[in-house]
């Protein structure tokens, strides 16, 4: 994953609350077991007039289809952006389309973490600040986001934002969370040794089978396929 330190780009405005991940990418646009090839389905129901039948006729009213939105890489929304389904495809589609920065007053919790894992910076600003920002930007305004110093600027505006320091580092370095966690492997292994004594029943997966005499499974004869 590529890190982000400084990003400049044009912004598009989608100023409604609760834009959900079904809207960002409808389920039927998730066509393969893959993270790529999703940009075409981004906002499909809003972006194409005939999306429901698989068509790709642009709806000229939709913000991303306006000529001025071409090349935009910053999306400004309102509250609870990315709520709903956990589908990471929403973030992959936004990224593949070209978005690198999202600005909203709050996010769906899973969506926020998915952004960090995929090199999209989700900035949280309060309602008033977003209003000032949207008043200041027009179609040609170049916004500059500086993740080193946690501020963004547009025209004469300069706005500070906060991001958890570890998440900021992850985005700056483009690091992989699994590799970071595996640095604590020794602590994990020690915890496991202790926990297997403290909560033995949690690890008793071998006992979990249909021979359990009090089983409530309605098909007590079915074969376990556990390895």
């Amino acid at each position: 994953m590529k890190g982000i330190t400084r990003h400049s780009g044009k912004a598009v405005l989608m100023l409604t609350d609760n834009i959900n991940t079904d809207q960002i990418i409808p389920s039927r646009e998730m066509k393969s077991v893959s993270k790529v090839g999703l940009a075409d389905g981004l906002f499909a129901n809003l972006r194409y007039l005939d999306a429901s039948t698989g068509g790709r006729t642009p709806d000229p009213q939709f913000v991303l289809n306006k000529p001025t939105a071409k090349g935009a890489s910053i999306l400004i929304a309102k509250s609870n952006f990315g709520c709903g389904s956990s589908r990471e495809h929403a973030v992959w589609a936004l990224h593949e389309y070209g978005f690198r920065i999202i600005i909203a007053t709050s996010y769906g919790s899973i969506f926020f973490d998915n952004c960090i894992n995929n090199g999209i910076l989700p900035i949280v600003l309060d309602q008033g600040t977003i209003a000032r920002l949207t008043d200041a930007v027009n179609a040609d305004t170049e916004l500059v986001v500086d993740l080193q110093h946690c501020h963004l600027s547009a025209e004469h505006l300069k706005i500070k934002f906060n991001l958890n320091e570890d998440k900021r580092q992850m985005l700056l370095e483009g690091s992989n969370a699994i590799d970071l966690t595996l640095k604590h492997k020794q602590a994990i292994d020690q915890f496991l040794v202790h926990d297997k004594t403290a909560r033995p029943w949690v690890y008793d997966l071998s006992a979990a089978n249909s021979n359990n005499p009090t089983t409530k499974l309605h098909h007590p004869t079915c074969q376990e396929s556990q390895s």
Binding site: R199, P200, W201, V202, D204, L205, A207, A208, N209, S210, N212, T214, T215, K216, L217
Partner: peptide, 15 residues
Amino acid sequence: VLGRPYAPANNTNEA
């Protein structure tokens, strides 16, 4: 919970 196929079959009092 108790008695279900993947629920604890041992150490149930402790659990």
